[in-house]
Amino acid sequence: MSFLELKDLRVHFPTDDGLVKSVDGLSFALERGKTLGIVGESGSGKSVTSLGILGLHKGGRAKLGGEIWLDGEELVGASAEHVRTLRGKKMAMIFQDPLSAMHPFYTVGSQIVEAYRIHNDVSKKVARKHAIDMLGRVGIPQPDRRVDSYPHEFSGGMRQRAMIAMALSCDPELLIADEPTTALDVTVQAQILDLMRDLQRDFNAALIIITHDLGVVAELADDILVMYGGKCIEYGTAEDIFERPEHPYTWGLLGSMPRLDRDRTERLLPIKGSPPSLINVPAGCAFHPRCTFEDRTGGKASTEVPQLVETEGGHLVRCHLPRDTRRSIWETEIKPSLEAS
């Protein structure tokens, strides 16, 4: 069994308007030292998945189903107390907005010390030394002084570094980063991405990076999972997804994105319509109302939910189009139009 394995994870929220199926049958596996990128638009269920793994839906309104196996332990059925002992120690999270994820009344150092002492029986002095080490490790200058600073005294990039230091303070084996660089400027984003790459190598942790930015996943991820409407619609290595994508939604994402590494295209190729409401997910394939190739599925798209099937060497696709049709559409229609200038 892999280090982290999700089997048919479901996170549903009952609401007055109906059942919101934020995550509906998600399965994947991740090994130590590997990075998985989860990509999707708002409402695709990517953040809910990460909160589910961390056990943060426990005690809330969410209805969880399926299994989450972390290092041989099942977490969906585990008690909230037990998951709490793992959280921080075995798995940790880096949030999008470090200003709202840190407590404004406590110094950065004391917040790291608190997290460290919950899981390690050490004196305050030892913990403080550890906090200074961690701050130095993530590239904060003069860590022995900055340890006593408050979050508001840090710039955005420094706060994100401090968040990373806090997340790594107990040497977690699974690190989940939810849009870790979205709130940052592009030059600072590049620094943080470098830092995360280096730290992951040093700590040999399993890393899940959740983002809407295909550029960021391409920089970091070994494998990529594309989510749409609470389901995985395509999964493969980073090269599978960028070089040989097979799902029309993935094609749409690639066509929507202006790229600096290629000649400027005359037009962007957007996906029509907008992401579905999770209360009223379209019948059949959730993507079919926005799909350009829906008519080539022989009417199955609107009636039958497609299965996630392997096309080649671990590359999974959830689409009704026959494999050969998908490949020929990518080679003859989509790929040339992305490169045309």
Partner: peptide
């Protein structure tokens, strides 16, 4: 600035 932009090309 230009070199900091992440490029969607894993290769």
């Amino acid at each position: 600035l230009l070199s900091a932009v992440p490029i969607p090309d894993p290769k």
